[in-house]
Write a protein that binds this DNA or RNA. Sequence first.
DNA 1: CTGATTTCTTAATCTGGTTCAAGTAAATCC
DNA 2: GGATTTACTTGAACCAGATTAAGAAATCAG
Lengths: 193, 193
Amino acid sequence: MNASNIIAQINRHISLDEKESLYFSTVLIPAKIKQGDFLEKIGTVTQNFIHVESGCLMSYYTDKGGDDHVIQFSTSGWWTGDLHSFTKQLPAIYSTRALADSSVFYLPKTDMDQLLDRYPKFERYFRILFQNSLITHQDRIIQNFSNTAEDRYEHFRIKYPSLEQYVPLKYIASYLGITPEFLSKIRRRQTEK
Amino acid sequence: MNASNIIAQINRHISLDEKESLYFSTVLIPAKIKQGDFLEKIGTVTQNFIHVESGCLMSYYTDKGGDDHVIQFSTSGWWTGDLHSFTKQLPAIYSTRALADSSVFYLPKTDMDQLLDRYPKFERYFRILFQNSLITHQDRIIQNFSNTAEDRYEHFRIKYPSLEQYVPLKYIASYLGITPEFLSKIRRRQTEK
DNA sequence: CTGATTTCTTAATCTGGTTCAAGTAAATCC
DNA sequence: GGATTTACTTGAACCAGATTAAGAAATCAG
């Protein structure tokens, strides 16, 4: 596994020269993750920002009642990780697990900090990344308020068609903010149409 | 109105020198906004990123049924605006209005683009700004899924105590994702305790 | 100061979605 | 390949919060 994919993807937003690309690829740590394995556990301090090369990951919050709530699925090209824990170096409130055998790159916090100091171009890259992600999150909040669960499910399937191969329905339900039982009901309603 | 407040605030994240501070303050456009006035209307392309000096603004989405959904209240020190419209120069899906007489700075898109090109330090500032905002938005999604409306209301009052002086209850209800009637019910329940 | 508009509350009724409990299909594991 | 765990479905009872409609309180305009 080499870093050419991730670098190509970054080059869609900024233009890295040889030196920058090389430096970046040396700080990335490649890893293979087996389905079901944890990349990050609640309560421990997040050391890495995670970039998915292939496979599928899921990040989720576990509430006081022990129920899980999915905040994100990540497939090829996505970054993930508990940003709050990563930034402030506090215990994570999210867990991240592989929903399929996956390969990822870890970007350790100290290396990311150095990277940003040395090559401000990466500040731009991550600024754009977070800016876009913020727009997506605002939209998700609005959609959750203004649409029914059924609309949200249809919208989800259109927006992330590739996820259905990886993600069990109960996690899709969680992502949508409903119970698996109710998602089941929605699905039956739709096939009856 | 001068730019010293906003520059002091930016200096909490990066260190601007004289030249940078000066350049930044020359591209900011100060404005006074009367209560009830629009800073940004749905359907028009957002030209400015908005920084609140004093007063209080509200950004909201209007759904197909004509119902408004508040995404953000902004008081002194906050940035606001329809980021999607601003970034992609597409018609805005959010409106922004003043909930009280307010003073703001506009940062026009072209000036922000030039600012970021000329002084990459600002890339860092906005990277941190969006990164923190993203964390807040993730948290809001999770809280909406895992807490009851009553818990969310209590949490809101603790987190944003200063907003109660500006914001009518019906907009707080909207921000929490409930109807004004139900917020009323919650409030009565609480005073009865 | 006064009428008009907007905000907030109250109560009755209704509904989208949950909970609980049970059964079935599908992965997974030795 | 058979046993066991995990994922999905079904249905009945239930509840958090929506809807509707009306009145009370506050704010605003002239």
